[in-house]
């Protein structure tokens, strides 16, 4: 048992370490580019709201949405698609054959990805506050941090779940991901509150953890914010349930993938 736990932890650390270390050595230009690109996209929507003379609150909403966008992109392109990419590079079969559990590998990816995204998200937020003179209020920093972390855990649970699906369906899922990226960003309320969709539609899009997480954070960070869907405490509870459910499904799917790979020699070979 102790050996299994040690192997799990060492695998997770090893996979996460690459992403953490890479930020400051190999991937510095990628970091700068994604921060600049993310900021420019956020700026588009800030200027858009200013062009239609929307209240300044909407600029703050876009800012918080822009803060969470790197996490969503990281979940989609660095967690959900990761196993597919490992297969295309020829690494997946080696990973499967090793004694390291696949779930530890994905956990390391997740933690490393969170670290990567946090650097980007914080820089984008700070630049946005400075350039657009947006003010946020923090009544209790620890509540904000806990809500934020729970939102992330639920969101990355979705990513881990989809990583198995991407492996099953390969190129088709990659296409679906690229076409789904923008609609999910819109539906999640990155650019505007989900309350605008109406109660029924907002309930449906709430299945995306990002939408509830954003709604909760906006309630905690914007003064006199009234465009919320549900009270943030209810949203946090729902996010905790989502986190548990998605993580459970992700682990079951990953175990199934490992079984198919080892028993039937499917899914892990390049161009299969």
């Amino acid at each position: 048992m102790k050996k299994h736990v040690e192997l799990f932890v060492r695998t997770a650390i090893a996979r996460g370490y690459v992403r953490v270390k890479g930020q400051f050595t190999r991937d510095v230009n990628w970091l700068i580019a994604s921060v600049v690109g993310g900021f420019l996209t956020m700026a588009t929507y800030v200027y858009l709201y200013r062009s239609i003379q929307a209240p300044e609150e909407f600029s703050a909403m876009v800012l918080i949405g822009g803060f969470m966008t790197p996490y969503w992109l990281n979940v989609l392109w660095s967690v959900a698609v990761q196993l597919y990419w490992e297969k295309e590079m020829g690494n997946l079969q080696i990973i499967i054959l090793s004694p390291a559990p696949l779930s530890a590998f994905l956990l390391g990816l997740t933690i490393g990805g969170m670290f990567q995204s946090t650097i980007r998200a914080v820089i984008i937020l700070l630049i946005g506050i400075f350039v657009f003179k947006v003010s946020l209020v923090i009544y209790n920093i620890w509540v904000v941090v806990v809500v934020f972390l729970i939102s992330l855990c639920a969101l990355y649970g979705v990513g881990m779940m989809f990583s198995s699906l991407f492996l099953f369906y390969g190129r088709e899922m990659w296409r679906v991901a690229s076409i789904a990226q923008e609609p999910v960003s819109i539906a999640s309320g990155i650019y505007f509150p989900i309350k605008l969709f109406g109660r029924v539609a907002a309930s449906v899009v709430s299945l995306i953890p990002l939408s509830l997480g954003l709604d909760a954070l906006r309630q905690l960070l914007l003064k006199d914010y009234e465009l919320y869907f549900l009270n943030w405490k209810v949203e946090v509870l729902i996010l905790v349930v989502m986190w548990v459910v998605f993580t459970f499904i992700a682990i079951r799917l990953l175990n199934y993938v490992e079984q198919i790979a080892k028993r039937e020699a499917r899914l892990t070979l390049r161009w299969q």
């Binding site: 230009n29 996209t41 858009l48």
Partner: peptide, 26 residues
């Protein structure tokens, strides 16, 4: 496989393209 430039281009192009709002507000 350097795709970081695309991130910058995507954001920048969207901002100045005049697709979503009149660029006169920039």
């Amino acid at each position: 496989e350097e795709t970081s430039l695309l991130d910058v281009l995507f954001g920048g192009l969207y901002l100045i393209s005049g697709a979503m709002f009149s660029p006169t507000v920039l």
